[in-house]
Each structure stands twice: as C-alpha cells, then as structure tokens.
C-alpha cells in the first residue's frame, strides 16, 4: 500500500470547484502566554495546585484533579529525550514542523533526516514534541540530555524554539 500521495497517480475524483467549507475555533489564551514566553526564550508551563504537576506547553485543565491549572512556572531549557523518531530523507517543501520548513530554515540539508523527539524539560512533568538538531542519528537515545535551541531572532511564535541539541 502506498504511503505518499505521488504514488497514487489515480484516485476517485471529479473535476471542478467544490465548496468544502472552513472551520474556526476560539483560541486558547494559554497559547499566547506560551509564545510570549518563547519570545523571551523561556518555557512556560502550567502548574496544578491540586497535584503539583507541571505541564509544558501549558494546559488549562488538570484531568486528574478536574480543576483549572491556575499556576504558571518557567521550567529549565535543559531536558531529557523520552522518545524519538528518525524520519525518512526530507525533501524541501514537503513538511512543516511547528510552522517551518526544516530545509528552508537551514536546519538540515535536503535529503537529510530529521529527528522528532519528545523532551521532558527539567521541572516539567510532561513531554514537549520538538526536533533534535545537530545530532548524529546514531547517537540519539532515550535519556539523552538536550538543551533548547532558540531562533536568532525570537518573534513570539512556536518556531522561536527551533528544537533541542545534545548537551555536551
């Protein structure tokens, strides 16, 4: 079974313009607090006053305690890889990670792989999905210590956190 679109030259279709509609959502203001933190090169998390858990990126509710997570904390930008994926070779313009094209951004060369990782930053109880940058795919492992890599100029966007790199 093919996994990619270009391997499916034919599918069921009807030529023409079709109205498919569009959705909107009400934004969660926590996203604003999170990207505002990124602009200052800080990782903001939410703290539950019920169980003391810290969630990064912040979440509004604690499901365990069924209450709002009212606390805010800044966690360390150093953390631990809890799991990872090694991608197939990446083509320019094929994927966007946190709104950016990793080839376009110069994070990798065309046909190199990317390594999406979950990182538990020190002080957090949750994982944040991001990219492992500047690491040999052979050296990545669960438990690897990493540090946040910030964009040269931060703008208050998710891509301000470009990824993490091995802590050496």
């Amino acid at each position: 079974m093919p996994y990619l679109k270009e391997e499916r030259p034919e599918t069921l279709g009807v030529e023409g313009e079709w109205n498919i509609g569009a959705y909107t959502w009400k934004a969660n203001r926590l996203l604003e607090e999170f990207v505002e933190g990124l602009k200052q090169r800080k990782l903001v998390g939410s703290l539950c006053f019920g169980c003391g858990k810290v969630i990064v990126p912040p979440r509004n509710l604690c499901g365990r305690c069924h209450r709002k997570m009212e606390g805010r904390v800044v966690v360390s930008d150093v953390g631990t890889v809890t799991c990872f994926i090694i991608s197939p070779p990446i083509k320019r313009g094929k994927i966007k990670v946190l709104g950016m094209d990793p080839v376009e951004q110069g994070l990798i060369q065309e046909d190199e792989v990317i390594i999406p990782v979950f990182v538990k930053f020190d002080g957090a109880d949750s994982n944040l999905g991001t990219l492992l940058i500047g690491a040999d795919p052979k050296e990545v492992h669960i438990g690897m210590r990493v540090r946040a890599v910030w964009a040269k100029e931060t703008r208050g966007e998710l891509s301000d956190l470009e990824g993490v790199e091995p802590l050496r």
Binding site: W25, K26, A27, N60, L61, H66, K68
Partner: peptide
C-alpha cells in the same frame, strides 16, 4: 470562552448541583 472551558464549567456545576464528586 473556549469550548473546553465552557464544558468544564458546566460539568463542575452539574456535579455540585447533585452534590457529588467526579
């Protein structure tokens, strides 16, 4: 309010109206 907050608040209130916990 986000959908999540709206739902959270109405559920909290219904539980409290019944006088029970989650």
């Amino acid at each position: 309010k986000t959908r999540e907050d709206m739902v959270f608040e109405v559920v909290k209130e219904a539980l409290s109206h019944a006088g029970i916990t989650r």
